[in-house]
């Protein structure tokens, strides 16, 4: 082993921080009701979820709450058959431009025999259409792999209107020899959801281009499940404009979930929401605009084994080798 290698390894070991599980004692705050949900400006069935808080290290069920009566603008929602304490709108619900939506939840959460009422309201925000989506390679190596990539989205921010943006990411697999299309919602939790705001006039009224998601060859779908991206897969980004209260709630959730870090530590605190009566959570309305882009094949980005697994042994017919000097 050369001296340089030895010193480099020592240096890397010294600088590599280590982690260990720690038996930390936390107190437990009294249980509180949690109400979350949203509706959108495209037809669909939307859900209001009711649960409660529990001890951080406890293993108790958080959906163990009494049944409730849930209304949006006096329209009663129906309980979901498969998921407890989830209440659904009709399947063609669509938030109208500029309309105010009022959520009302009646529930005997404290068990005193009398229903408590929790309310919130949200107004459909300004609709901002997505102008473009570009899958851009993040590498300066001309001969390198095309991964990682970013989903560069472009849109025109309206002047003088505070907008609270978020972006969802979806992946639709290409048809292969054995399977049909599958559409995966990658940003399926708040901390995987991309948020950005132009509430201040920092970029107010600008034409915005924003690298919303970083995509590696494998995308985290569930904590123990990742998806491999192949050529001809479709990446879809959905631009959302949120009401401020729901945006703040999601932002607080993301910050809380990311934990503390001495280098860039954001002081955590109680979550901000817009549900009255001391409930945790938020009710929001957001708008939707989508764009799609297809992942292109690039030599060297996938192994033969991967391509055979996905497209069969004749995969070269689909992706002929590029001739050099072309």
């Amino acid at each position: 082993m050369s001296r340089k290698s030895f010193v480099a390894i020592i240096w890397a070991i010294l600088l590599t921080s280590c982690t260990e599980k720690y038996d930390f004692k936390l107190s437990t705050a009294p249980s509180r009701i949690v109400i979350t949900g949203y509706v959108c400006n495209e037809p669909g069935q939307y859900a209001i979820n009711i649960s409660r808080t529990g001890g951080y290290f406890a293993a108790d069920s958080l959906t163990d709450v009494p049944s409730a009566d849930v209304y949006i603008n006096d329209e009663k929602l129906t309980p979901c058959d498969t998921i407890p304490n989830r209440y659904l709108t009709r399947d063609d619900f669509c938030a109208a431009d500029g309309e105010v939506y009022r959520l009302k939840v009646e529930i005997d959460f404290d068990g005193d025999g009398v229903n408590e009422t929790y309310t919130a309201e949200a107004k459909t925000p300004y609709f901002v259409p997505l102008s473009g989506l570009l899958l851009q390679t993040l590498s300066n190596d001309s001969g390198g792999s095309q991964f990682p990539m970013t989903t560069l989205i472009t849109f025109q921010d309206p002047k003088g209107i505070p907008c609270y943006y978020g972006a969802h990411l979806y992946l639709t697999t290409a048809r292969d020899s054995a399977d049909t299309y599958n559409r995966y919602h990658i940003s399926n939790t708040p901390s995987k959801y991309c948020l950005g705001t132009t509430a201040t006039d920092a970029i107010d009224g600008q034409f915005v281009f924003f690298p919303a998601y970083l995509i590696s060859k494998r995308l985290l779908y569930h904590p123990l499940d990742t998806l491999t991206i192949y050529p001809n897969d479709t990446v879809e980004v959905e631009l959302n404009c949120h009401t401020k209260e729901y945006f703040d709630f999601l932002s607080n959730c993301t910050s809380s979930a990311s934990g503390s870090n001495p280098m860039f530590m954001v002081p955590a605190g109680p979550i901000q929401g817009n549900i009255s009566g001391g409930a945790i959570g938020a009710f929001g309305v957001y708008t939707v605009s989508r764009k799609k882009a297809v992942v292109q094949y690039k030599e060297g980005s996938w192994t033969d084994e991967q391509m055979i697994k996905r497209f069969g042994v004749d995969w070269r017919k689909l992706f002929p080798k590029e001739e050099s000097g072309r």
């Binding site: 930390f24 979350t36 979820n49 529990g54 951080y56 708040p190 809380s256 979930a257």
Partner: peptide
């Protein structure tokens, strides 16, 4: 001193449940 969660709750709005720590006080641990 640092801020640690006193409770947890779940947000299932985007499809999958995610456990979110709930903080109630500053630098209580």
């Amino acid at each position: 001193p640092f801020t640690a969660p006193d409770a947890r709750y779940e947000v299932p709005d985007f499809g999958d449940k995610e456990v979110i720590p709930l903080y109630t006080g500053r630098n209580t641990y």
